[in-house]
Computed example of a mutant assay.
Amino acid sequence: MPVQAHIVGPWGIPSITRFHETLISVHFFPSIPFEFSSSPFLHCSAKRSFNVLKSKGIPINCSRWENRLRVDFSASEEPFSGTGSENSASTRKRKVVEHVSLLKAKGDLSNEEETDMLDYIYTSQYQMRGIVAISLGRISDQNPDGYTHAVYMRFQRREDLAKFYSHSFYLGVLKDHVVPYCHGLISVDYESEVEDDILPIFRKGEEFNYGVEFVLLLSVIESANGGSIEDALATFAKLTMDFPSLIVQSTQGTNFNSSDNEYTHCIVIRFRSIEAFQIFVGGSEYKDIWRSKFQPITQKSLSVHFTVDPVGTEIM
Results as ranks from 00 to 15, higher is better:
13 I>G: 04
14 P>E: 15
18 R>W: 08
22 T>W: 10
34 F>G: 04
40 P>Y: 11
40 P>C: 09
46 A>D: 08
50 F>D: 04
50 F>Y: 05
55 S>A: 08
60 I>Q: 09
73 F>V: 06
86 E>V: 05
91 T>H: 14
97 V>F: 14
101 S>M: 12
105 A>V: 04
110 S>E: 01
110 S>W: 04
122 Y>C: 08
128 M>P: 01
130 G>M: 11
131 I>R: 09
131 I>F: 12
142 Q>P: 03
143 N>Y: 10
149 H>K: 12
152 Y>S: 06
160 D>R: 07
165 Y>F: 12
175 K>L: 09
184 G>H: 03
198 I>Q: 09
199 L>T: 09
199 L>Y: 15
200 P>R: 01
209 N>T: 10
216 L>F: 00
221 I>R: 10
225 N>M: 01
229 I>E: 02
232 A>I: 02
239 L>A: 15
241 M>E: 06
242 D>Q: 03
245 S>T: 05
249 Q>V: 02
261 N>F: 10
262 E>G: 13
264 T>C: 12
265 H>C: 02
277 F>C: 04
278 Q>L: 11
281 V>H: 00
285 E>A: 14
289 I>C: 07
291 R>A: 11
291 R>D: 05
302 L>C: 03
305 H>A: 06
309 D>K: 10
311 V>N: 14
311 V>H: 15
